[in-house]
Structure formats: structure tokens, C-alpha cells
């Protein structure tokens, strides 16, 4: 708790000092003003459209994030298992994925905008493309780390390749998937906010970059704190989910 208090204190003192020189300072708004702005943002509907923009931004961003991360996780799991389990797939694809994962996703954002237009698809695609190579590499490495003894044992019990993938490999990879998704949430937010900043009509990233023009630090800070809270909550929920669904993975650790 102490570091949080210290940062808050440092901010309050900096804000105090600046406003003592210039009461109209916009750079470091007083904590009280941020709270006031936050209260206004979450409760007051937009005068023109009648909807509360804060919640609409949140919903849009979370939908994009969930779709992008969901698609990325699905692809990562599928290809990760295939590359980790099937030697034929590994020899033909693992090098390809290694090279693919070096392509900077933001550099291909213009391509996505050209191909998919400026709508939702390109934003979701950016997140999915950004995190999928990492997920594939991580999960295929984890899959091939499964002790071969287990796979042989399953074979001697008559398991088909599909049964080994579904009953032996998949359940043991799931906690790893959750862990990998937790790690890739950071990049996912980065891609989301970048895509929203460039071309969007709503979303948390869009709003921050919009109000930047008015130097509305109180709004920006409110949104930044809100994004941090959401990101932290997602991470915590995933960790809890993993512990709840896969208790055996904790015993080993």
C-alpha cells in the first residue's frame, strides 16, 4: 500500500505547487478535481446523444479486447497443440511461426485498415494478430515439454492421437493458456488503444486521444486509472479462474 500512497502524495504535492503559481494550470489537476470529473463522466449522459460516453467507451473497448484476445487464444491453443504434439506439423510450421512473430503488428495496421476498412474488424484483427504468434510459440513449447512418458502411457492404454490431444495434452495446457493470455493482455491493450487512437468513433483509447486536444488532463487521468483498474481486474479474474478450474496445476508449483 505504501508505494501507492507515496505516488499519490507526490502527485498531490506537484499539483499543489503548480497551481500555487498558476491557478488555471491544466497539466496537473488537483486530485479533488479528478474525482469531480470522474463522478461527472460516469453519471452524466452526453448532451447531444443522451448516452453516457464513459460506459459506451468501456463497452466498445472491452468487446474489441475480448474478441481479439478470444480469437488469439483459440488460434494459439489450436496451433500450439498441433505444433507441440505432431512432429510433421512442427517441422513445417514452427520456423514459420518464429519468423511471423517478428513482424511488428503495428507496422501492418495500415494494411489492416486498407483490407478491412476502418470498422471493428481491423481493430479486432490487430489485437489477434499481435498476440497470436506469442501464444502459439508459448503453448507449443509447453506442449512439447509434456513428459513423453505420459504420451506413451496413454498410447498403451489405447488412446488415439485425438484422444491424447483432448484428454492428456489439452487439459494440461489450459492453465498455461490462461497464464499466457494474462501475459499478452498488456500487448493486447497496447494494440487496442493504438488502433482506437488512429481510427475509431468510440472506445477508451479514442476518448483519451480526443480530449488530448483540449488538454483535458482530468479526463485523461480518469480514463487511464479506469483502464488500469480493468486490466488489473482481468488479470486477477484469470488467475482466480485458473486456480478454480485447474487446482492440480497449483499443487505441482
Amino acid at each position: 500500500m505504501v508505494p501507492f500512497v507515496l505516488v499519490l502524495l507526490a502527485y498531490a504535492m506537484g499539483s499543489e505547487a503548480r497551481r500555487a503559481v498558476n491557478p488555471a494550470d491544466k497539466l496537473l489537476p488537483a486530485p479533488a478535481q479528478i474525482v469531480e470529473t470522474a463522478a461527472r463522466l460516469v453519471a452524466e449522459p452526453d448532451r447531444r446523444s443522451g448516452i453516457i460516453l464513459f460506459w459506451q467507451d468501456t463497452a466498445s473497448s472491452l468487446r474489441r479486447l475480448a474478441l481479439g484476445v478470444g480469437i488469439g487464444a483459440g488460434l494459439g491453443l489450436l496451433f500450439g497443440l498441433a505444433i507441440g504434439l505432431l512432429p510433421l506439423v512442427r517441422t513445417s510450421f514452427s520456423g514459420f511461426v518464429a519468423v511471423l512473430s517478428m513482424v511488428p503488428p503495428l507496422a501492418i495496421l495500415p494494411i489492416l485498415f486498407i483490407v478491412f476498412g476502418l470498422g471493428e474488424v481491423s481493430k479486432v484483427a490487430l489485437i489477434a494478430i499481435g498476440i497470436t504468434p506469442f501464444l502459439i510459440r508459448d503453448l507449443s513449447a509447453r506442449t512439447s515439454e509434456l513428459p513423453f512418458e505420459q504420451l506413451v502411457k496413454a498410447q498403451t492404454l489405447g488412446a488415439s492421437s485425438l484422444a491424447i490431444a483432448l484428454r492428456v495434452a489439452l487439459p494440461q495446457i489450459m492453465p498455461r493458456l490462461i497464464q499466457a493470455v494474462r501475459l499478452s493482455l498488456g500487448p493486447a491493450w497496447l494494440f487496442l488503444i493504438a488502433a482506437e487512437a488512429i481510427a475509431s468513433q468510440d472506445g477508451l483509447g479514442y476518448r483519451i486521444f480526443l480530449v488530448r486536444r483540449y488538454l483535458a488532463m482530468d479526463v485523461i487521468l480518469t480514463y487511464v486509472i479506469w483502464i488500469t483498474v480493468i486490466a488489473f481486474a482481468l488479470d486477477w479474474l484469470l488467475a482466480r479462474l485458473s486456480r478454480r478450474l485447474y487446482p492440480w496445476a497449483e499443487v505441482r508449483a
Binding site: 488415439s160 484422444a163 485447474y246
Partner: peptide, 28 residues
């Protein structure tokens, strides 16, 4: 084997059930 012969993600009972289930059909 000396190690890793049982499935860590299944309970003790399910490890024995798996001995019958894994080969029961294509999906195990």
C-alpha cells in the same frame, strides 16, 4: 516408468477411469 507415469491433471480415481476411457473411442 520411474516418473511421470500417471496423469497429473486427473484425480487418483480418474486416472484409473482413464485407463478404460482413453481407448474407448476416438475422443477417449
Amino acid at each position: 516408468f520411474q516418473r511421470y507415469s500417471v496423469f497429473p491433471h486427473m484425480t487418483v480415481r480418474d486416472n484409473l477411469v482413464a485407463a478404460e476411457a482413453l481407448g474407448a473411442n476416438l475422443f477417449g
